[in-house]
Design a binder for these strands. Structure first.
Lengths: 111, 111
DNA sequence: TTCAGAGTGAACCATGTGGTTCAGTATATT
DNA sequence: AATATACTGAACCACATGGTTCACTCTGAA
């Protein structure tokens, strides 16, 4: 569960605010590469790379329509990332609420 | 909400299976840098870098104990990342189940 | 007081990343 | 048919990343 190439790539894809912006924009409906590039303030070529990254992990789907490329949210609904985070959120909760919480808080107040 | 340096760094920190391993290991209890390095098959210096990355985003807390450095899970409980993912998971759901689903599916059957 | 062990810091290396420009291809529009 | 538009591909750049080695400091133990 931990050693997943897709998980690596998915988290890496999300670790960029330009790409998160793209997901936000596509949440409102499909858009072309140019339409995504303009508000981001980067070149079309640059945006095409971002779209590729998102497409490779399934977060975005694209389709060539005439001379434009229509982009929309993919069907990969962040399930893997959610699953992972949920698992570790529980791990955190268990550690903080459990028997060792006292000891942990005693020694780990620094942050 | 989207433009967050911490969110960038947190997702980036999670985008490495060695670091996710470290979190898993620390979920079972504190460990020193050496104890983390050995199963990972990398040098202590290398692991120290990973620990630093995790510490900088609050996922790990460390404390120098004698000549060792004890590492444990931090108090930053992935809330930011969870919040973001939940928001977008809902966005996905809305898009796929909502009123625009018909239009979307009409034009986006390719996947 | 030595000496071994744990970690740190600096330097280095190969590779990846986010961006650019420029030249090309394919498709609309006139 | 000519031209403008939307994207693609290759080359390039600066910088970040994941890893190393080597020399060093600090601490615990003999």
């Amino acid at each position: 569960m931990v050693h997943s190439e897709l998980l690596d790539s998915t988290f890496a894809a999300l670790a960029d605010s330009t790409r998160r912006d793209v997901l936000a924009r596509l949440g409102a409906g499909p858009a072309t590469v140019s339409e995504l590039a303009e508000p981001a303030g980067i070149t079309v070529t640059g945006m095409a790379k971002h779209v590729r990254v998102l497409e490779e992990v399934g977060l975005v789907t694209t389709e060539k329509v005439g001379r434009t490329r229509q982009c929309r949210l993919g069907t990969e609904r962040l399930d893997d990332a959610m699953l992972w985070l949920n698992f570790y959120q529980r791990l955190w909760d268990r550690r903080l609420d459990g028997l060792d919480a006292y000891f942990t808080l005693q020694k780990g107040q620094d942050q």
